[in-house]
Amino acid sequence: MNGSLHPARKVVDIKLKRGPAGLGFNIVGGVDQQYVMNDSGIYVSKIKEDGAAALDGRLKEGDKILAINGIKLEDRTHSATVELFRTAGEDVELLVLPKLPAHMNGPTSSPPDGDSSSSSSSSSSFGVLAALLGAAAVLAFIVMRFQPQLRKHF
């Protein structure tokens, strides 16, 4: 045990054969469109059903792609990375850092699945809090409004 809170993640080498619909996944990130705060990496945002990535089964939403065919993606813009994918050929080799499992405590290196930003958890918490406060206010209004009428019926 090295004292780390998170077990070391192994980089995975994934080889995909481009199908009729491409490689079958979408990406987010880049130096111009950071998906994870303080990280300009490229992340898998969506795996398309029945695409090459889904059929292979190893690439997951939230995984960080480190390289395409040996070309590192560090410090690249989103559009430059998209162009690398477009010109990568039929057989594509990806170097991937898998997403941390969702059940682990503490901050993760990538946001939840989907295309939402990393602030979606806090904004949804505020939404729940606002809804609860609104419900409490309505309930208090009803109790105060009808309290005199309730006394008349007793």
Rank of each mutant, 00 (worst) to 15 (best):
S119Y: 14
L5T: 13
G127S: 13
P20V: 12
G89P: 04
S125P: 01
P107M: 11
D63P: 01
G134S: 10
L100G: 02
L150W: 14
G127V: 02
L133T: 12
S119W: 04
L95R: 09
D50T: 09
G70P: 02
R145I: 01
R145T: 12
P112V: 15
G24V: 06
K152V: 12
K17I: 15
V36W: 03
L100F: 08
S125C: 06
L95K: 11
E93K: 09
K64I: 00
S125N: 06
D39C: 14
A131C: 06
F85Q: 11
P148Q: 02
V31K: 15
I27A: 00
K48W: 08
E74W: 00
E74N: 06
I42C: 12
H103D: 14
A8Y: 13
Q34Y: 04
A88D: 01
R151G: 00
N105Y: 09
I65L: 02
L84M: 09
T77F: 09
G106N: 00
S110E: 04
Q149Y: 14
F25K: 07
I47A: 07
K10W: 06
G24F: 12
G134R: 08
P101Q: 02
A54G: 04
E49N: 13
G3M: 02
S109N: 14
I47Q: 03
L129C: 10
I27H: 04
D75Y: 05
S116I: 02
A67R: 04
A131D: 07
A140W: 11
S40F: 02
V12W: 07
M104Q: 08
D91Y: 06
D39S: 09
K17H: 10
F141R: 11
L139E: 05
F25V: 04
G89Y: 06
F141W: 15
E93V: 15
T81V: 07
G41K: 02
F85W: 12
I27T: 05
A53T: 03
E90I: 14
L59A: 07
I71V: 15
V44L: 03
G106C: 01
M104A: 07
V36T: 13
A8C: 01
N26E: 15
G57S: 11
P7N: 03
F25T: 02
D32C: 03
I27M: 07
P101T: 04
I47F: 02
S124V: 06
T108H: 13
L133W: 06
L132W: 06
V143D: 01
L95M: 13
P111Y: 11
I65R: 01
S120E: 06
V36E: 04
P111N: 11
N26I: 00
F154S: 08
L59K: 08
R18K: 15
S4C: 02
A52V: 05
L94W: 00
L55R: 14
